[in-house]
Amino acid sequence: MDDFIEQVDRYRDEFYRYIVRTAWDSSVADDVFSSAVLAAWENRHKFTPGTNFRAWMYRIITNKCFVANRETGRTPRPLDEVPEGVMTAVADRGYRDVLEEPDRFLEQCGDEVHRAFKILSTAQRTCILLRSVEKFSYKEIAEIMDIPVGTVMTHLSRGRTKLRGELLGYAQERGVIRTMPKLMPRAKADDGGRAAQNEN
């Protein structure tokens, strides 16, 4: 028992943060955290000693987050609004400006990152958090979410593109990007952005 408590204590901040970022309604974080830890406690006999306790806990917590979000009943935007991927986004003239100074861009976006992140679907947020924040491999994420690795990559790609699109839109509205894309002919995705470059 002490081992279990010690292990949860060790990771509790990151578990809690993961719930806050994954849940549509972050006010349910206490409930989801408590419910997940109690479920893990009741099922601790199913954990194989020597395997990854942290990943095992994430699997339980992720399930609880999906249940909580299903009960919240929020509908994400349809997937067909999401562009194909990061490389497509790179072709956008405004996005090329972002990539010149990503740190400055994020600094100017401020808390907008959190708001934009909440727009993604639960699966997209989960994949991005598990990969970019918690540093799980694609294979581990697939096991935690009980989905194929290819699906993990699709969620990651679409989620990241959508997030960048939201941040880019915000930056354009606020004039954060130095070159306003609407003043420049937009590059087509299939010309690798050369059209926009030629304008300079």
Binding site: Y16, D30, L106, H114
Partner: peptide, 30 residues
């Protein structure tokens, strides 16, 4: 892209901790 992704991750990882009261209540129960 890597710098942008790292920056986003840094922001998503920041400013949230499990409240001590929540954890202590749970720990007592366990």
């Amino acid at each position: 892209e890597m710098r942008l992704e790292a920056g986003i991750a840094e922001r998503l990882a920041a400013k949230v901790a499990c409240p001590d009261a929540t954890w202590e209540a749970l720990r007592s129960q366990l």
